[in-house]
Amino acid sequence: MKIVLASASLRRQELLKRIIQDFHIVVSNFSEDSIMYNNDPKDYVIKLSQGKAREVSERIDHEALIIGADTVVVLENKIMGKPKDEGDAFNMLKNLSGKWHKVYSGITLINTKDGKSISDYVCTKVKFSHISDEDIQKYINTGEPMDKAGAYGIQGLGGIFVEAINGCYYNVVGFPLNKISGMLKQMV
């Protein structure tokens, strides 16, 4: 059966190759704005992953196993999405400085042959060291934080801010390999 990743994320594509060599990419057109945040990050990321996987499953015309995923950064129960501009990125990083926050990923797999689907989530706690305004601005000037939830990438230059993590590293990157591998085994 064909495996389809419902994501344009190069990081997710690269990580999925560690589990599966042959898969297809069909970018989801699901509108994330259609899901309201109800102060439950687990529920929120699961609904987002379900929406992405379902939208792709309804568009393809062959049997496939669809993988939908979404990742959010949560500080004090508030979602920190991708920054709108450099000022927004600065504020996010300033707020994360010296604090623990959580990264949630929702994963959904849908088998288009039998309609079976499973969804789950992973949560990782991340601690930032104290970051100076100057270091925040230097990081923003690299451009790296502009397309990342919470305005940082642990796998890139933003990793220098991470003092500690408790949980799955790959979840913070945006694709929890261990969880996804286990879910794939349940579906095949």
Rank of each mutant, 00 (worst) to 15 (best):
S119G: 13
K148S: 00
E58A: 12
S49I: 08
Q186L: 14
K78W: 00
I110H: 08
G158I: 04
F128H: 13
K148D: 00
K113Y: 06
I160E: 08
I20Q: 14
S181F: 10
A8L: 00
V56I: 10
I136R: 14
K185W: 05
T71E: 08
V172E: 10
Y169Q: 10
N95L: 14
V188M: 13
H24T: 07
K47R: 15
G68C: 12
N171S: 09
H24P: 00
F90T: 04
V188H: 11
V45P: 02
M36K: 15
G153D: 05
S181I: 00
I118F: 08
Q13D: 01
E76M: 02
I140Y: 12
E55K: 15
I35A: 07
I19M: 13
N178G: 02
G158E: 09
I107V: 13
I67Q: 05
K17V: 02
A64Q: 14
S49T: 09
I140H: 10
I46W: 04
I25V: 15
R59M: 11
D133F: 00
A8R: 15
V45I: 04
E14C: 03
I46K: 12
I60R: 06
S119Q: 13
A69Y: 09
G143L: 02
G81N: 11
L65V: 15
L10N: 15
K138C: 01
R54D: 05
E32N: 09
K113Q: 09
T112C: 03
L5T: 11
E32V: 06
T112I: 03
V173N: 10
K102G: 00
Y37N: 04
R11M: 06
P145N: 10
I165T: 08
E134H: 07
G106T: 10
Y139L: 06
K84F: 01
K99G: 08
H130C: 09
S119A: 14
S97G: 01
Y170R: 03
H101S: 01
I154W: 12
F175K: 04
L96D: 01
V188K: 09
G98I: 11
G158P: 03
F23W: 07
V172D: 11
D85E: 06
I180K: 06
S49A: 15
V4D: 03
N38Q: 14
C168N: 12
A89F: 11
D133G: 00
G68R: 14
